[in-house]
Amino acid sequence: MRVVIARCSVDYSGRLDAHLPPATRLLMVKADGSVLVHSDGGSYKPLNWMSPPCRLSVAEPTAEEAAAGVEQVWTVQHTKSDDRLVVRIEEFLADHSADLGVDPGLVKDGVEAHLQKLLAEQIDLLGAGHRLVRREYPTAIGPVDIMAKDPTGASVAVEIKRRGDIDGVEQLTRYLDLLNRDPLLAPVRGVFAAQEIKPQARVLATDRGIRCLVLDYDAMRGLDDVASRLF
């Protein structure tokens, strides 16, 4: 990655035209070819950018540009369209390159696979007398996270999310519609389980006869002593 702090102006042309007048900005050139222009604000979002596949070329300024104080011109041309990003650098304040290597990616704590494993091991969280049938129960439209039986022997399909929203309820609804066509399984009840369930999702689930279950991830991992709580 190359990181440059410079006083520059930026022009974007193609599907739209945009202009950034001269100012001090952060320019990032990544190994994948992308070029991003940042200001000291606006959080993570760049002011302008070019995504790969693209090609960066560096040229000397024209006589007119040099007279205006431009030292170097960067042209970033997208290889599959006419989109072009032109950065006219008037002054370099810092220029540093480093090989960051291969990034292993973000490892999230409490992802759905972890929640699924913990709930399968603690199936009584669904209620006393429940037993696990199978994780990743296969259907024609994808696997149900957990299939269980309640104390009466009726089937229970569980969909697990970190944050439960309407899309998750819709997904579970599709599973239930399909599972209830199987006379060996029907009737199948649904449980929508998540660390946090949005109000709209709860209303929709309740309307469709789906029970909501909020999962306490720390307690499931044994990191939270529920018995010692005051509230």
Rank of each mutant, 00 (worst) to 15 (best):
V133M: 00
A63D: 15
L115E: 04
W49Q: 12
V37M: 14
L184K: 07
D40L: 09
G142E: 10
D17G: 07
R134L: 14
A68H: 06
P183I: 12
D103W: 06
I197M: 00
D145T: 10
T206D: 15
P138L: 03
V102T: 02
D95S: 02
L115Y: 04
R211Q: 08
E112P: 00
G41E: 12
Q116M: 11
A186R: 11
L213E: 02
S9G: 08
V35P: 14
R134N: 12
S34R: 15
E60R: 12
K198C: 07
M1L: 09
I146F: 02
L126E: 00
A227R: 15
K161V: 06
I146K: 02
E159A: 07
Y137L: 11
G142W: 08
L93K: 09
A148G: 04
T75M: 03
E196T: 11
R211L: 05
P138A: 03
I5R: 09
L179E: 11
P53D: 10
L85P: 01
S9V: 04
A31V: 08
G153N: 11
D95I: 01
L185M: 13
A113T: 10
R181E: 14
G69N: 01
A193G: 05
P151G: 12
C212H: 04
I166R: 05
V203T: 14
V87F: 01
V10P: 12
V37P: 13
R202C: 05
L179R: 11
L47C: 09
A63F: 11
V87E: 00
V111F: 11
P138M: 03
F92H: 14
M1C: 07
L36D: 13
L179D: 12
H96E: 15
R135C: 08
H19C: 07
Q171H: 10
S34P: 14
L204I: 07
L106S: 04
L213H: 03
D150E: 01
D99G: 02
T152N: 13
L172A: 08
L125Q: 03
Q171E: 10
Q116N: 12
Q116V: 13
F192N: 06
A66M: 05
D225A: 08
A18C: 06
H38Q: 10
Y12F: 13
V35Q: 15
D150F: 01
E91Y: 02
I89Q: 01
